[in-house]
Design a binder for these strands. Structure first.
Lengths: 350, 350
DNA sequence: GACATGTGTCGAAGCGCTTCGACAAACACC
DNA sequence: GGTGTTTGTCGAAGCGCTTCGACACATGTC
């Protein structure tokens, strides 16, 4: 009922400090600190008294002071590619998963764009702004990697560079993904499969995952006696139409398509519909894409999900483990899962 | 040529401190600080000597120490909605623009998800983690707003709440956007226009922008003698098909469509094509969407762009201005721009 | 040459927290 | 009732930076 502390829902003008809490609770500053950190045992009574004071004063420890004294900022830097032309929803999902998981571990997330380039890695590490880093969209020969190796800050990569020695990485097992698609189609009796691939630029940029998927597809296709062709595709209506035409021209017996390029999926389905090729009666379609895309398509797509959330969560967990000094495996590949939906079925002539 | 400092590209194991730089340059610590901040005049010679030392030692000021001493973290918190089901590319684009613009002003960006809720606002402000906040996806009655009003940290909202008193907001002028679309179609001689709206949930959530667009459309339509109907649409193939069918059933004379729901755009075009309605010969289509979506569609869409980058940039600039103590306007509405592309043309009977 | 006025630099005092060693007090043991 | 061990608390010393006042010296002014 005391009016004094009721400045609009408990917001004080001046921020309380540890010392004030200590005075209010009748203990020393260090005691308050230990209550907060739990690094020394505190008697039940004192703890409660301190906690009440914290509550009443609306105390929040000052992040800078804490970082200075403990040389731990409790911040994880997340570096996302500047390029916002591709996989945007996936990136976003990973980023959000990183942010929420980090919070669960008491950390905040600093958002870095690729724009600053490798410099950002140095700046953030050297200034003690972040305790650790998570890098997304890693390329096979990424410029940022030497800096990570040289620096002593824990880091986790989302994606697989060419040389993973000494690095910790998280990624979907794209080779297994490819294999899974091939198996599924082979099981259904298909003999001739076409891959509607990523844009040529993606292969040139050597982001790795596209090649790995293809490789998985190829080797399993060979093992199962599948004929496989692969055509890159820029995505969008026009380009997809061209790719599709070329595929059916070259291999009229094609009965199944594997699509990895998200922006080709909707056009592809529209085109097939328009050409009178029924899915899955005439052509089966298997996609590698986020579940959301697969379930929103018509018909719903049999797909291997891109586990964006999982990737984000794992990245944080690994980075937290490293911060805690735990030994961590180098590469964590997430096992792909294929969900059968309405777009794949037995090969027509079978 | 000295080997001593060549530990792999200039990375020292121990991080240099201000004091070390000062010793190395033969000046006092405060002098180094003033060189860095430029807050006092420094002689040319000293400045150069200090700068060389900084270079040689690879010095980066410690963020925490700086924040503690100056009570400025040089961090802006960006709160994005947790919900990743809508506008994802737009959100991402805004977020990236915020991040890069902030860097240009010497600030970093802390990524907060909506998950933590209004608490995050208090936590970040009270701990001094961030100097200011930018909130995205603001709802008409947003829970976070009272906290912002109570707190003393500068904040900028992206989006318009019901009551903007005392707040600074950035948004596209959606009412003007609606009006612009109506004008464009009226100019082309259309008399009966249908709006393929956002999902019903969007209207219920009162995010504001959808209503404002509609309002702009309606009043200008009335002024220009256009008949207008509006039907919400969930997006996706099925739902769009239903909405479209209902529209043409109710108003067979409809010659133009306005679409705001991004996820309805591609299905809509596919459906029209399939139904044999040529765009723009039989039906004109105007969209409110990012330029990228408009240009990737077939045919390319006449559209009002959602200026995501601009919104992000303006938000940062306003927040920086407020941090600098400059008075700032309350609401900055960005003027919409309509780009005529291939999807709109003269009304058929005209 | 006495005076005011700038300029450039330094020293010291914090900013708010963590953490280490010290030390009473309470308990255990024979 | 001495010894040894916990247990709970405190004081003090920083962490690396900013910033204020002081001060020495160079300049300008009548």
């Amino acid at each position: 009922m005391s009016k004094r502390f009721d400045t609009f829902g408990g917001d004080e003008i001046r921020m309380a400090t540890l010392a004030e809490v200590a005075r209010h609770a009748g203990v020393s500053a260090s005691t308050v600190s230990y209550v907060l950190s739990g690094k020394r045992s505190i008697s039940e009574g004192t703890r409660r008294r301190v906690e009440r004071s914290i509550q009443e004063l609306g105390y929040h420890p000052h992040a800078g002071a804490r970082a200075l004294a403990s040389s731990r900022s409790n911040i994880i830097a997340l570096m996302v590619p500047l390029r916002t032309d591709m996989y945007v929803p996936v990136m976003m999902e990973i980023a959000m998963a990183v942010a929420t998981t980090a919070r669960q571990h008491g950390h905040d997330v600093l958002l870095l764009t690729g724009e600053e380039g490798p410099t950002a890695v140095r700046r953030v590490a050297a200034s003690g702004l972040a305790d650790a880093m998570i890098l997304m969209d890693v390329e096979l020969e990424d410029e940022r990697i030497p800096l990570l190796r040289a620096g002593d800050r824990p880091a986790v990569l989302v994606g697989l560079p060419a040389d993973t020695a000494g690095l910790t990485c998280v990624d979907l097992d794209f080779a297994a993904t490819g294999a899974l698609c091939a198996d599924h189609l082979a099981d259904l009796g298909h003999r001739s499969v076409a891959v509607v691939g990523e844009a040529a630029a993606v292969y040139q940029r050597h982001t790795g995952f596209a090649e790995r998927t293809l490789q998985g597809l190829r080797s399993r296709a060979a093992a199962r006696g599948l004929r496989l062709i692969h055509r890159p595709c820029e995505g969008g209506y026009e380009s997809t139409a061209g790719t599709l035409a070329r595929i059916f021209e070259e291999r009229p017996d094609t009965t199944a398509l594997v699509v990895q390029n998200e922006s080709a999926i909707v056009p592809l389905l529209a085109l097939l519909r328009q050409q009178g090729r029924a899915v899955p009666e005439d052509v089966s379609v298997v996609a590698v894409c986020p579940d959301q895309v697969a379930t929103q398509a018509t018909p719903q797509l049999t797909s291997v999900a891109i586990p964006a959330q999982q990737m984000g969560r794992h990245a944080v967990e690994l980075v937290i483990a490293k911060l805690g000094g735990s030994p961590t495996e180098e590469v964590r590949l997430l096992g792909p899962e294929l969900t059968v939906r309405a777009s794949s079925g037995p090969a027509p002539s079978a």
